[in-house]
């Protein structure tokens, strides 16, 4: 898809002399959604590990004898989810224009749900 004129652009004389070409929004959307996915995975694993002891044990297997416990798996898988989803979405959207506001909102909702999942009064209910 060709790069189009973006909505919300203001006329800025200071930028005219910099002669900057427009850029597709796809890579930015990928970063926004991937951040949301990463934080969502963090909250999901934190919450699910409370009632699900098999998952808790699996997450503790990531600690490599360092005494970190299940936090090792939660954070390792969170980082993997963030970087892998970012790479995949970036590849898919690298030269496309996508609805950036929609993607930001998706990332925001995922991030807020993830943050809720890390909040002790929430995850201790399970």
């Amino acid at each position: 898809m060709a790069v189009t004129e973006h909505h919300g652009m203001e006329e800025v004389p200071e930028l005219a002399s910099l002669n900057m070409a427009d850029k597709p929004d796809g890579p930015a959307a990928a970063a926004m959604v991937a951040a949301g996915i990463g934080i969502f995975v963090l909250g999901l694993l934190t919450t699910l590990a409370v009632p699900w002891t098999d998952l808790k044990d699996f997450l503790a297997d990531f600690q490599l004898g360092q005494g970190v416990g299940p936090l090792a798996g939660k954070t390792t898988l969170t980082a993997i989810a963030f970087f892998v989803s970012w790479a995949a979405l970036h590849y898919r959207w690298r030269d496309k224009d996508v609805d950036l506001k929609k993607m930001f909102n998706i990332g925001l909702v995922l991030g807020l749900l993830g943050a809720l999942g890390t909040f002790p009064p929430f995850f201790e209910r399970f």
Partner: peptide, 25 residues
């Protein structure tokens, strides 16, 4: 752990768009 994720994504957006951010409030 949300801090490095958000900071990394924000840094990417700043570097990717550069001065173009001025014209897109």
């Amino acid at each position: 752990w949300a801090a490095p994720i958000l900071a990394t994504a924000a840094a990417f957006l700043i570097i990717y768009y550069g001065p173009r951010l001025i014209s897109r409030p």
